[in-house]
Design a protein around this nucleic acid. Structure first.
Length: 543
RNA sequence: CGCGGGGUGGAGCAGUCCGGUAGCUCGUUGGGCUCAUAACCCAAAGGCCGAGGGUUCGAAUCCCUCCCCCGCAACCA
Protein backbone atom coordinates (compact mmCIF):
# COMPACT_ATOMS: atom_id res chain seq x y z
CA UNK A 1 0.00 0.00 0.00
CA UNK A 2 1.54 3.23 -1.12
CA UNK A 3 0.82 6.11 1.19
CA UNK A 4 1.40 9.75 0.41
CA UNK A 5 3.66 11.07 3.10
CA UNK A 6 4.15 14.78 3.57
CA UNK A 7 7.02 15.71 5.82
CA UNK A 8 7.53 19.39 6.44
CA UNK A 9 10.40 20.58 8.54
CA UNK A 10 10.38 24.11 9.88
CA UNK A 11 11.64 26.86 7.62
CA UNK A 12 14.83 28.30 9.06
CA UNK A 13 14.79 32.06 9.24
CA UNK A 14 17.27 33.57 6.79
CA UNK A 15 18.85 36.23 8.94
CA UNK A 16 21.54 34.17 10.66
CA UNK A 17 23.43 30.90 10.50
CA UNK A 18 22.10 27.56 11.65
CA UNK A 19 23.31 26.17 14.95
CA UNK A 20 23.02 22.73 16.50
CA UNK A 21 19.77 23.70 18.20
CA UNK A 22 18.10 24.15 14.83
CA UNK A 23 19.57 20.89 13.70
CA UNK A 24 18.17 18.99 16.67
CA UNK A 25 14.69 20.11 15.71
CA UNK A 26 14.99 19.42 11.98
CA UNK A 27 16.97 16.21 11.74
CA UNK A 28 14.08 13.93 12.81
CA UNK A 29 12.33 14.96 9.59
CA UNK A 30 15.08 13.51 7.42
CA UNK A 31 15.09 10.26 9.36
CA UNK A 32 11.36 9.88 8.90
CA UNK A 33 11.56 10.80 5.22
CA UNK A 34 14.28 8.26 4.51
CA UNK A 35 12.37 5.59 6.35
CA UNK A 36 9.20 6.08 4.33
CA UNK A 37 11.13 6.13 1.08
CA UNK A 38 12.67 2.81 2.01
CA UNK A 39 9.14 1.59 2.65
CA UNK A 40 8.31 2.65 -0.89
CA UNK A 41 5.72 5.23 0.05
CA UNK A 42 5.45 8.45 -1.91
CA UNK A 43 7.39 10.93 0.13
CA UNK A 44 7.15 14.69 -0.14
CA UNK A 45 9.88 15.98 2.14
CA UNK A 46 9.86 19.74 1.85
CA UNK A 47 11.13 22.85 3.51
CA UNK A 48 12.85 26.09 2.61
CA UNK A 49 14.30 29.32 3.86
CA UNK A 50 12.03 31.89 5.44
CA UNK A 51 13.19 35.08 3.76
CA UNK A 52 10.70 37.81 4.56
CA UNK A 53 9.89 39.71 7.72
CA UNK A 54 11.22 42.59 9.73
CA UNK A 55 14.38 40.99 11.18
CA UNK A 56 15.73 40.34 7.69
CA UNK A 57 14.90 43.90 6.66
CA UNK A 58 16.59 45.31 9.75
CA UNK A 59 19.67 43.25 9.25
CA UNK A 60 19.82 44.32 5.64
CA UNK A 61 19.68 47.95 6.66
CA UNK A 62 22.44 47.45 9.20
CA UNK A 63 24.70 45.80 6.66
CA UNK A 64 23.75 48.18 3.90
CA UNK A 65 22.44 45.42 1.71
CA UNK A 66 19.07 44.53 0.30
CA UNK A 67 16.83 42.08 2.14
CA UNK A 68 17.06 39.88 -0.91
CA UNK A 69 20.84 39.77 -0.69
CA UNK A 70 20.78 38.94 3.00
CA UNK A 71 18.24 36.18 2.70
CA UNK A 72 19.85 34.74 -0.41
CA UNK A 73 23.16 34.60 1.36
CA UNK A 74 21.78 32.59 4.25
CA UNK A 75 19.66 30.50 1.96
CA UNK A 76 22.78 29.40 0.11
CA UNK A 77 24.49 28.67 3.40
CA UNK A 78 21.55 26.60 4.63
CA UNK A 79 21.48 24.60 1.42
CA UNK A 80 25.13 23.75 1.75
CA UNK A 81 24.75 22.69 5.38
CA UNK A 82 21.73 20.50 4.70
CA UNK A 83 23.48 18.99 1.74
CA UNK A 84 26.57 18.07 3.67
CA UNK A 85 24.49 16.54 6.43
CA UNK A 86 22.57 14.41 3.98
CA UNK A 87 19.17 16.04 4.30
CA UNK A 88 17.17 14.42 1.53
CA UNK A 89 14.68 17.16 0.78
CA UNK A 90 12.55 16.56 -2.26
CA UNK A 91 12.30 20.30 -2.45
CA UNK A 92 14.07 22.92 -0.40
CA UNK A 93 12.98 26.32 -1.65
CA UNK A 94 12.62 29.81 -0.28
CA UNK A 95 9.71 32.09 0.46
CA UNK A 96 11.05 34.76 -1.88
CA UNK A 97 10.79 32.48 -4.89
CA UNK A 98 8.18 32.73 -7.63
CA UNK A 99 6.86 29.23 -6.98
CA UNK A 100 6.06 30.21 -3.41
CA UNK A 101 4.87 33.75 -4.05
CA UNK A 102 2.41 32.82 -6.77
CA UNK A 103 1.07 29.93 -4.72
CA UNK A 104 0.59 32.14 -1.67
CA UNK A 105 -1.12 34.86 -3.62
CA UNK A 106 -3.53 32.41 -5.15
CA UNK A 107 -4.17 30.88 -1.75
CA UNK A 108 -4.82 34.27 -0.18
CA UNK A 109 -7.02 35.44 -3.00
CA UNK A 110 -9.29 32.46 -2.46
CA UNK A 111 -9.14 32.91 1.28
CA UNK A 112 -10.19 36.56 1.15
CA UNK A 113 -13.51 35.52 -0.28
CA UNK A 114 -14.43 33.54 2.82
CA UNK A 115 -16.39 34.83 5.77
CA UNK A 116 -13.47 34.50 8.14
CA UNK A 117 -11.50 37.34 6.60
CA UNK A 118 -12.49 40.92 7.37
CA UNK A 119 -11.08 44.39 7.02
CA UNK A 120 -10.40 46.61 10.01
CA UNK A 121 -8.81 50.00 10.72
CA UNK A 122 -6.14 49.83 13.41
CA UNK A 123 -3.49 52.13 14.79
CA UNK A 124 -0.19 51.17 13.20
CA UNK A 125 2.93 51.87 15.22
CA UNK A 126 5.51 53.68 13.16
CA UNK A 127 9.08 54.70 13.91
CA UNK A 128 9.95 58.02 12.23
CA UNK A 129 13.65 57.57 12.80
CA UNK A 130 13.84 54.12 11.27
CA UNK A 131 11.20 55.19 8.76
CA UNK A 132 9.43 51.90 9.12
CA UNK A 133 6.22 50.41 10.38
CA UNK A 134 6.77 48.28 13.44
CA UNK A 135 5.25 44.92 14.16
CA UNK A 136 3.85 44.45 17.66
CA UNK A 137 6.89 42.86 19.19
CA UNK A 138 9.16 45.66 18.00
CA UNK A 139 7.36 48.17 20.18
CA UNK A 140 8.43 48.31 23.82
CA UNK A 141 7.04 50.36 26.68
CA UNK A 142 5.38 50.13 30.04
CA UNK A 143 2.56 47.76 30.73
CA UNK A 144 -0.71 49.61 31.44
CA UNK A 145 -1.65 46.91 33.94
CA UNK A 146 1.44 46.50 36.08
CA UNK A 147 3.74 49.29 34.95
CA UNK A 148 6.63 46.97 34.15
CA UNK A 149 8.50 46.78 30.88
CA UNK A 150 6.48 45.08 28.18
CA UNK A 151 6.45 44.38 24.48
CA UNK A 152 3.67 45.39 22.14
CA UNK A 153 2.16 41.94 22.03
CA UNK A 154 2.35 40.88 25.63
CA UNK A 155 3.62 41.81 29.09
CA UNK A 156 5.90 39.07 30.32
CA UNK A 157 5.68 40.26 33.89
CA UNK A 158 1.96 40.09 34.45
CA UNK A 159 1.13 38.04 31.38
CA UNK A 160 -1.53 40.34 29.99
CA UNK A 161 -2.03 40.25 26.23
CA UNK A 162 -1.59 43.70 24.72
CA UNK A 163 -1.83 45.72 21.59
CA UNK A 164 0.96 48.19 20.97
CA UNK A 165 -1.31 51.21 21.31
CA UNK A 166 -2.07 50.19 24.91
CA UNK A 167 1.54 50.59 25.98
CA UNK A 168 2.59 53.59 28.01
CA UNK A 169 5.57 55.45 26.56
CA UNK A 170 5.88 53.26 23.47
CA UNK A 171 9.38 53.10 21.96
CA UNK A 172 10.90 51.50 18.91
CA UNK A 173 12.87 48.49 20.13
CA UNK A 174 15.48 49.00 17.43
CA UNK A 175 16.45 52.65 17.93
CA UNK A 176 14.63 53.48 21.19
CA UNK A 177 12.97 56.58 19.82
CA UNK A 178 9.32 57.42 20.36
CA UNK A 179 6.70 55.61 18.32
CA UNK A 180 3.87 57.34 16.53
CA UNK A 181 0.64 55.73 15.43
CA UNK A 182 -1.01 56.04 12.06
CA UNK A 183 -4.39 54.69 11.26
CA UNK A 184 -4.22 51.94 8.70
CA UNK A 185 -6.51 49.20 7.45
CA UNK A 186 -5.65 45.55 7.41
CA UNK A 187 -7.16 42.21 6.60
CA UNK A 188 -7.77 40.03 9.64
CA UNK A 189 -8.41 36.35 9.95
CA UNK A 190 -11.03 35.42 12.54
CA UNK A 191 -9.07 32.75 14.30
CA UNK A 192 -11.36 33.13 17.28
CA UNK A 193 -14.16 31.67 15.16
CA UNK A 194 -12.20 28.44 14.78
CA UNK A 195 -12.15 27.72 18.50
CA UNK A 196 -14.35 24.67 18.14
CA UNK A 197 -12.58 23.27 15.12
CA UNK A 198 -9.17 23.77 16.67
CA UNK A 199 -10.18 22.25 19.98
CA UNK A 200 -11.62 19.23 18.24
CA UNK A 201 -8.53 19.02 16.08
CA UNK A 202 -6.14 18.96 19.03
CA UNK A 203 -8.29 16.53 20.98
CA UNK A 204 -8.26 14.17 18.03
CA UNK A 205 -4.46 14.01 18.15
CA UNK A 206 -3.58 13.08 21.68
CA UNK A 207 -0.66 11.02 20.38
CA UNK A 208 1.30 14.22 19.78
CA UNK A 209 4.18 14.94 22.08
CA UNK A 210 2.92 16.40 25.28
CA UNK A 211 4.57 19.76 24.62
CA UNK A 212 2.56 20.06 21.40
CA UNK A 213 -0.69 19.37 23.19
CA UNK A 214 0.14 21.65 26.10
CA UNK A 215 1.22 24.60 23.93
CA UNK A 216 -1.74 24.25 21.63
CA UNK A 217 -4.26 24.05 24.43
CA UNK A 218 -2.78 27.02 26.16
CA UNK A 219 -2.88 28.99 22.97
CA UNK A 220 -6.49 28.06 22.37
CA UNK A 221 -7.46 28.98 25.91
CA UNK A 222 -5.56 32.22 26.15
CA UNK A 223 -4.37 33.51 22.85
CA UNK A 224 -7.00 32.79 20.27
CA UNK A 225 -7.21 36.33 18.93
CA UNK A 226 -7.93 37.40 15.41
CA UNK A 227 -4.69 38.19 13.64
CA UNK A 228 -3.82 40.56 10.84
CA UNK A 229 -2.69 38.78 7.70
CA UNK A 230 -1.38 41.96 6.11
CA UNK A 231 1.28 44.40 7.27
CA UNK A 232 2.70 47.81 6.40
CA UNK A 233 6.03 46.56 5.18
CA UNK A 234 8.22 46.86 2.13
CA UNK A 235 9.77 43.42 2.20
CA UNK A 236 7.37 40.57 1.65
CA UNK A 237 4.74 39.17 -0.65
CA UNK A 238 2.34 41.61 -2.30
CA UNK A 239 -1.24 41.42 -1.08
CA UNK A 240 -3.46 40.27 -3.94
CA UNK A 241 -6.22 42.76 -3.26
CA UNK A 242 -7.10 46.20 -4.53
CA UNK A 243 -6.31 48.97 -2.09
CA UNK A 244 -3.46 47.00 -0.52
CA UNK A 245 -0.76 47.95 -3.00
CA UNK A 246 1.50 49.42 -0.32
CA UNK A 247 1.21 46.43 2.02
CA UNK A 248 2.63 42.93 2.26
CA UNK A 249 1.32 39.61 3.52
CA UNK A 250 2.32 39.13 7.13
CA UNK A 251 5.08 36.59 7.44
CA UNK A 252 3.25 33.97 9.50
CA UNK A 253 0.38 34.04 7.02
CA UNK A 254 2.67 32.89 4.23
CA UNK A 255 5.73 31.01 5.47
CA UNK A 256 3.76 28.04 6.80
CA UNK A 257 2.11 27.80 3.38
CA UNK A 258 5.53 26.83 2.12
CA UNK A 259 4.76 23.20 2.88
CA UNK A 260 1.89 23.48 0.43
CA UNK A 261 3.72 25.42 -2.25
CA UNK A 262 6.80 23.20 -2.22
CA UNK A 263 4.90 19.93 -2.21
CA UNK A 264 2.93 21.25 -5.16
CA UNK A 265 6.18 21.82 -7.00
CA UNK A 266 7.26 18.28 -6.21
CA UNK A 267 3.98 16.82 -7.39
CA UNK A 268 4.20 18.77 -10.63
CA UNK A 269 7.77 17.65 -11.22
CA UNK A 270 6.82 14.03 -10.69
CA UNK A 271 3.61 14.23 -12.66
CA UNK A 272 1.60 13.19 -9.58
CA UNK A 273 -1.86 14.46 -8.74
CA UNK A 274 -1.38 17.09 -6.05
CA UNK A 275 -4.83 16.48 -4.58
CA UNK A 276 -3.91 12.92 -3.71
CA UNK A 277 -1.36 14.19 -1.25
CA UNK A 278 -4.26 15.75 0.64
CA UNK A 279 -6.54 12.75 0.39
CA UNK A 280 -7.29 9.88 2.73
CA UNK A 281 -4.25 7.72 1.95
CA UNK A 282 -1.86 10.23 3.35
CA UNK A 283 -0.04 11.05 6.52
CA UNK A 284 1.39 14.48 7.22
CA UNK A 285 4.27 15.19 9.57
CA UNK A 286 5.40 18.61 10.73
CA UNK A 287 8.78 18.71 12.38
CA UNK A 288 10.14 21.63 14.39
CA UNK A 289 11.17 22.97 17.79
CA UNK A 290 8.69 23.62 20.55
CA UNK A 291 8.50 27.36 19.98
CA UNK A 292 7.05 26.66 16.55
CA UNK A 293 4.16 24.59 17.82
CA UNK A 294 1.35 27.19 17.63
CA UNK A 295 2.28 28.07 14.08
CA UNK A 296 1.69 24.48 13.03
CA UNK A 297 -1.19 23.52 15.27
CA UNK A 298 -3.14 26.80 15.25
CA UNK A 299 -2.06 29.21 12.51
CA UNK A 300 -1.56 26.77 9.66
CA UNK A 301 -4.82 24.92 10.37
CA UNK A 302 -6.66 28.25 10.58
CA UNK A 303 -5.32 29.32 7.21
CA UNK A 304 -6.28 25.98 5.73
CA UNK A 305 -9.77 26.15 7.18
CA UNK A 306 -10.24 29.70 5.93
CA UNK A 307 -9.03 28.79 2.47
CA UNK A 308 -11.42 25.95 1.86
CA UNK A 309 -11.98 22.29 2.45
CA UNK A 310 -9.34 20.73 0.23
CA UNK A 311 -6.62 20.71 2.86
CA UNK A 312 -5.81 18.10 5.41
CA UNK A 313 -4.83 19.36 8.84
CA UNK A 314 -1.57 18.04 10.33
CA UNK A 315 -1.52 14.42 11.50
CA UNK A 316 1.73 14.35 13.40
CA UNK A 317 3.57 17.10 15.19
CA UNK A 318 7.17 16.15 15.91
CA UNK A 319 8.07 19.00 18.24
CA UNK A 320 11.45 18.93 19.91
CA UNK A 321 12.43 20.35 23.22
CA UNK A 322 15.57 22.45 23.38
CA UNK A 323 19.23 21.61 23.33
CA UNK A 324 21.59 23.23 25.79
CA UNK A 325 25.28 23.53 25.07
CA UNK A 326 27.75 22.42 27.73
CA UNK A 327 25.05 22.99 30.32
CA UNK A 328 24.16 26.50 29.19
CA UNK A 329 21.40 27.87 27.04
CA UNK A 330 22.42 28.42 23.43
CA UNK A 331 22.71 32.12 22.72
CA UNK A 332 23.48 33.53 19.32
CA UNK A 333 24.15 37.04 20.59
CA UNK A 334 26.75 35.81 23.06
CA UNK A 335 28.01 33.39 20.46
CA UNK A 336 27.45 30.50 22.83
CA UNK A 337 26.60 28.22 19.99
CA UNK A 338 28.02 25.61 17.69
CA UNK A 339 27.40 26.63 14.12
CA UNK A 340 26.45 23.92 11.71
CA UNK A 341 28.59 25.37 8.95
CA UNK A 342 31.63 24.98 11.21
CA UNK A 343 31.18 21.38 12.22
CA UNK A 344 30.00 19.85 8.97
CA UNK A 345 33.53 19.92 7.65
CA UNK A 346 35.24 18.89 10.87
CA UNK A 347 33.23 15.78 11.68
CA UNK A 348 31.70 12.87 9.87
CA UNK A 349 28.11 13.77 9.05
CA UNK A 350 26.97 10.41 10.39
CA UNK A 351 28.60 11.19 13.74
CA UNK A 352 26.70 14.43 13.97
CA UNK A 353 23.46 12.77 12.93
CA UNK A 354 23.92 9.84 15.25
CA UNK A 355 24.64 11.98 18.26
CA UNK A 356 21.87 14.45 17.54
CA UNK A 357 19.33 11.63 17.48
CA UNK A 358 20.76 9.43 20.23
CA UNK A 359 21.06 12.44 22.47
CA UNK A 360 18.25 14.44 20.95
CA UNK A 361 15.82 16.61 22.94
CA UNK A 362 12.92 14.37 22.08
CA UNK A 363 10.88 14.55 25.24
CA UNK A 364 12.86 16.96 27.35
CA UNK A 365 15.77 19.34 27.06
CA UNK A 366 19.10 17.58 26.61
CA UNK A 367 22.65 18.79 26.66
CA UNK A 368 25.21 18.82 23.88
CA UNK A 369 28.69 18.38 25.29
CA UNK A 370 31.83 17.71 23.31
CA UNK A 371 32.86 15.06 25.76
CA UNK A 372 29.71 13.10 25.12
CA UNK A 373 29.95 13.71 21.40
CA UNK A 374 33.43 12.23 21.18
CA UNK A 375 32.35 9.47 23.47
CA UNK A 376 29.40 8.59 21.33
CA UNK A 377 31.47 8.63 18.15
CA UNK A 378 34.33 6.56 19.48
CA UNK A 379 32.33 4.21 21.64
CA UNK A 380 29.09 3.49 19.89
CA UNK A 381 29.43 4.41 16.25
CA UNK A 382 33.02 3.30 15.86
CA UNK A 383 33.60 0.83 18.67
CA UNK A 384 30.38 -1.10 18.40
CA UNK A 385 29.09 -0.65 14.87
CA UNK A 386 32.17 0.26 12.81
CA UNK A 387 34.20 -2.39 14.50
CA UNK A 388 31.62 -5.10 13.98
CA UNK A 389 31.41 -4.32 10.29
CA UNK A 390 35.15 -4.14 9.98
CA UNK A 391 36.02 -7.31 11.87
CA UNK A 392 33.46 -9.27 9.86
CA UNK A 393 34.27 -7.96 6.41
CA UNK A 394 38.00 -8.03 7.06
CA UNK A 395 37.58 -11.66 8.03
CA UNK A 396 35.78 -12.43 4.80
CA UNK A 397 38.39 -10.58 2.82
CA UNK A 398 41.37 -12.19 4.47
CA UNK A 399 40.28 -15.72 5.20
CA UNK A 400 37.56 -16.41 2.65
CA UNK A 401 39.26 -14.88 -0.32
CA UNK A 402 36.94 -11.86 -0.33
CA UNK A 403 33.93 -14.01 -1.04
CA UNK A 404 31.05 -14.45 1.40
CA UNK A 405 31.20 -18.05 2.60
CA UNK A 406 28.29 -20.41 2.35
CA UNK A 407 26.60 -20.98 5.69
CA UNK A 408 23.44 -21.91 7.45
CA UNK A 409 21.19 -19.09 8.46
CA UNK A 410 20.74 -19.05 12.22
CA UNK A 411 17.01 -19.07 12.91
CA UNK A 412 17.25 -17.00 16.07
CA UNK A 413 19.04 -14.30 14.11
CA UNK A 414 16.51 -14.36 11.27
CA UNK A 415 13.72 -13.92 13.73
CA UNK A 416 15.44 -11.04 15.42
CA UNK A 417 15.95 -9.36 12.08
CA UNK A 418 12.40 -9.57 10.85
CA UNK A 419 11.15 -8.42 14.24
CA UNK A 420 13.46 -5.43 14.06
CA UNK A 421 11.99 -4.13 10.82
CA UNK A 422 8.59 -4.20 12.48
CA UNK A 423 9.44 -2.63 15.80
CA UNK A 424 11.94 -0.07 14.55
CA UNK A 425 9.57 0.97 11.77
CA UNK A 426 6.78 1.45 14.24
CA UNK A 427 8.98 3.56 16.47
CA UNK A 428 10.08 5.80 13.61
CA UNK A 429 6.51 6.31 12.47
CA UNK A 430 5.50 7.74 15.82
CA UNK A 431 8.65 9.81 16.13
CA UNK A 432 10.40 7.77 18.81
CA UNK A 433 13.72 7.97 17.06
CA UNK A 434 15.85 7.67 20.13
CA UNK A 435 14.20 4.43 21.07
CA UNK A 436 14.46 3.19 17.48
CA UNK A 437 18.17 3.89 17.30
CA UNK A 438 18.68 2.32 20.68
CA UNK A 439 16.88 -0.82 19.59
CA UNK A 440 19.05 -1.13 16.50
CA UNK A 441 22.21 -0.68 18.51
CA UNK A 442 21.13 -3.36 20.89
CA UNK A 443 21.31 -5.62 17.86
CA UNK A 444 24.75 -4.26 16.99
CA UNK A 445 25.94 -5.28 20.43
CA UNK A 446 24.33 -8.63 19.91
CA UNK A 447 26.40 -8.98 16.75
CA UNK A 448 29.65 -8.43 18.58
CA UNK A 449 28.58 -10.82 21.27
CA UNK A 450 27.71 -13.46 18.72
CA UNK A 451 31.06 -13.02 16.99
CA UNK A 452 32.91 -13.43 20.27
CA UNK A 453 30.89 -16.40 21.41
CA UNK A 454 31.37 -18.24 18.13
CA UNK A 455 35.12 -17.51 17.95
CA UNK A 456 35.53 -17.81 14.19
CA UNK A 457 39.23 -16.97 14.50
CA UNK A 458 39.60 -20.33 16.26
CA UNK A 459 37.07 -22.41 14.35
CA UNK A 460 38.83 -21.27 11.19
CA UNK A 461 41.43 -23.90 12.04
CA UNK A 462 39.30 -26.42 13.89
CA UNK A 463 35.90 -26.43 12.21
CA UNK A 464 35.75 -24.58 8.91
CA UNK A 465 32.05 -25.27 8.41
CA UNK A 466 31.18 -23.66 11.71
CA UNK A 467 33.46 -20.77 10.96
CA UNK A 468 31.70 -20.22 7.63
CA UNK A 469 28.32 -20.34 9.37
CA UNK A 470 29.39 -17.68 11.82
CA UNK A 471 30.75 -15.30 9.24
CA UNK A 472 27.83 -15.91 6.92
CA UNK A 473 25.45 -14.91 9.69
CA UNK A 474 27.50 -11.87 10.62
CA UNK A 475 27.35 -10.68 7.03
CA UNK A 476 23.57 -11.10 7.06
CA UNK A 477 23.40 -9.08 10.26
CA UNK A 478 25.41 -6.30 8.67
CA UNK A 479 23.31 -6.27 5.53
CA UNK A 480 20.19 -5.72 7.59
CA UNK A 481 21.79 -3.24 9.95
CA UNK A 482 22.75 -1.15 6.98
CA UNK A 483 19.14 -0.83 5.90
CA UNK A 484 17.82 -0.28 9.41
CA UNK A 485 20.42 2.40 10.01
CA UNK A 486 20.16 4.15 6.67
CA UNK A 487 17.62 6.74 7.85
CA UNK A 488 19.92 7.69 10.68
CA UNK A 489 23.42 7.41 9.23
CA UNK A 490 23.02 7.36 5.45
CA UNK A 491 26.63 8.02 4.48
CA UNK A 492 28.17 4.93 6.01
CA UNK A 493 25.14 2.87 5.05
CA UNK A 494 25.53 3.83 1.46
CA UNK A 495 29.17 2.75 1.50
CA UNK A 496 28.42 -0.69 2.85
CA UNK A 497 25.42 -1.02 0.57
CA UNK A 498 27.80 -0.74 -2.34
CA UNK A 499 30.25 -3.26 -0.93
CA UNK A 500 27.53 -5.83 -0.41
CA UNK A 501 25.25 -4.66 -3.24
CA UNK A 502 22.15 -4.30 -1.12
CA UNK A 503 18.95 -2.62 -2.19
CA UNK A 504 17.65 -0.01 0.18
CA UNK A 505 14.13 -1.16 0.89
CA UNK A 506 12.57 -1.64 4.30
CA UNK A 507 12.56 -5.43 4.34
CA UNK A 508 14.76 -8.33 5.33
CA UNK A 509 17.93 -8.52 3.28
CA UNK A 510 20.19 -11.40 2.50
CA UNK A 511 23.59 -11.56 0.89
CA UNK A 512 24.10 -14.72 -1.07
CA UNK A 513 27.11 -16.94 -0.57
CA UNK A 514 29.84 -16.31 -3.07
CA UNK A 515 29.27 -12.58 -3.26
CA UNK A 516 32.60 -10.92 -3.68
CA UNK A 517 33.40 -7.90 -1.58
CA UNK A 518 36.06 -5.24 -2.06
CA UNK A 519 38.75 -4.68 0.51
CA UNK A 520 36.84 -3.11 3.40
CA UNK A 521 37.90 0.32 4.48
CA UNK A 522 37.51 1.98 7.84
CA UNK A 523 34.04 3.50 8.28
CA UNK A 524 34.80 5.96 11.05
CA UNK A 525 38.11 7.41 12.09
CA UNK A 526 38.80 7.51 15.79
CA UNK A 527 38.56 10.97 17.31
CA UNK A 528 41.41 11.97 19.54
CA UNK A 529 40.19 12.87 23.01
CA UNK A 530 42.02 16.14 22.78
CA UNK A 531 39.42 17.48 20.36
CA UNK A 532 37.19 17.86 23.41
CA UNK A 533 39.54 20.45 24.86
CA UNK A 534 40.13 22.06 21.50
CA UNK A 535 36.44 22.48 20.88
CA UNK A 536 35.79 23.77 24.36
CA UNK A 537 38.54 26.29 23.93
CA UNK A 538 37.14 27.40 20.61
CA UNK A 539 33.76 27.83 22.23
CA UNK A 540 35.11 29.87 25.14
CA UNK A 541 37.28 32.02 22.94
CA UNK A 542 34.51 33.16 20.68
CA UNK A 543 31.87 33.77 23.31
C1' C B 1 0.71 31.61 44.59
C1' G B 2 3.43 34.48 37.06
C1' C B 3 4.51 30.51 33.02
C1' G B 4 7.08 26.24 31.44
C1' G B 5 10.83 22.19 31.82
C1' G B 6 13.55 19.28 35.16
C1' G B 7 15.70 16.73 39.86
C1' U B 8 16.84 8.44 38.60
C1' G B 9 24.22 4.84 40.98
C1' G B 10 30.62 9.27 39.23
C1' A B 11 28.80 11.47 33.97
C1' G B 12 24.91 11.56 30.09
C1' C B 13 20.14 9.61 29.51
C1' A B 14 15.52 5.85 29.32
C1' G B 15 11.51 4.34 32.32
C1' U B 16 6.63 8.20 34.74
C1' C B 17 0.58 8.72 30.38
C1' C B 18 -1.52 2.52 31.31
C1' G B 19 1.62 1.43 39.46
C1' G B 20 4.35 -4.82 40.22
C1' U B 21 11.83 -7.51 41.02
C1' A B 22 15.44 0.03 38.92
C1' G B 23 17.38 0.01 32.96
C1' C B 24 20.94 1.72 28.91
C1' U B 25 25.62 3.97 27.30
C1' C B 26 30.10 5.89 29.25
C1' G B 27 33.41 5.75 33.48
C1' U B 28 35.66 2.54 37.56
C1' U B 29 37.56 -2.52 39.19
C1' G B 30 38.74 -7.62 38.01
C1' G B 31 38.98 -11.34 34.22
C1' G B 32 38.90 -13.28 29.01
C1' C B 33 40.03 -12.94 23.75
C1' U B 34 43.48 -11.54 19.90
C1' C B 35 39.40 -11.73 13.93
C1' A B 36 38.92 -6.30 14.40
C1' U B 37 40.19 0.97 14.37
C1' A B 38 44.41 -0.20 22.06
C1' A B 39 38.55 -2.33 19.11
C1' C B 40 35.39 -6.87 21.27
C1' C B 41 33.36 -10.27 25.22
C1' C B 42 32.38 -11.71 30.53
C1' A B 43 31.90 -10.37 35.65
C1' A B 44 31.70 -6.98 39.82
C1' A B 45 31.18 -2.58 42.67
C1' G B 46 28.08 1.62 42.78
C1' G B 47 21.07 4.12 43.53
C1' C B 48 16.86 4.52 50.10
C1' C B 49 14.64 7.09 41.71
C1' G B 50 15.09 15.72 45.35
C1' A B 51 12.27 15.79 50.68
C1' G B 52 7.90 14.67 53.55
C1' G B 53 3.00 12.84 53.76
C1' G B 54 -1.17 10.11 51.47
C1' U B 55 -3.77 6.18 48.30
C1' U B 56 -2.51 0.85 47.56
C1' C B 57 -1.15 -5.85 48.98
C1' G B 58 2.56 -3.04 46.22
C1' A B 59 4.68 3.80 44.00
C1' A B 60 10.44 6.32 40.36
C1' U B 61 5.39 5.84 38.31
C1' C B 62 -1.05 8.19 41.09
C1' C B 63 -2.66 12.44 44.88
C1' C B 64 -1.10 16.58 48.36
C1' U B 65 2.75 19.73 50.47
C1' C B 66 7.64 21.46 50.36
C1' C B 67 12.87 22.18 48.62
C1' C B 68 16.35 22.88 44.73
C1' C B 69 18.05 23.65 39.43
C1' C B 70 17.21 25.63 34.31
C1' G B 71 14.64 28.90 30.60
C1' C B 72 11.09 33.08 30.10
C1' A B 73 14.37 41.84 27.50
C1' A B 74 16.47 41.09 22.69
C1' C B 75 19.13 37.39 18.96
C1' C B 76 17.15 32.41 19.58
C1' A B 77 14.38 25.82 17.62
Amino acid sequence: MNMNILIGSAWPYANGSLHIGHLAGLLPADVIARYYRAKRDKVYFVSGSDCHGTPVAIRAKQENKSPQEISDHYHAEFCECFNKLGFSYDRYGKTSSDEHISFVQEFHRAMYACKYIYEKETPQPFCEKCNTALTDRFVVGKCPECGEKARGDQCDVCGVVLDPENLLEPLCSVCRSAVTFKSTKHLFIAISKFANELTTFVNAHLHWRKNAIAFSRRYINEGLRDRAVTRDLDWGIDVPKDGYEDKKIYIWAENVLGYLSMSKTVAARRGEKYDELWGADSRHYYVHGKDNIPFHTIILPSLMLANGDKWKLPDDIISSEYLTLEGRKISTSQNWAIWVKDIVDRYHPDSIRYFMIANGPEKRDTDFSWREFVNSHNGELLGSYGNFVNRTLAFVYKYFDASVPNGKQDSEISEKISALFQTVGGMIEVGNLKEALDTIFEFVRFGNKYFDTERPWQTRNTDVVKCADTIFNCVQIIANLVVLLEPFIPFSSSKIKNWLTIENSWSVKSVSAGSVIPEPEILFERLDKKVVDEELERLQKHS
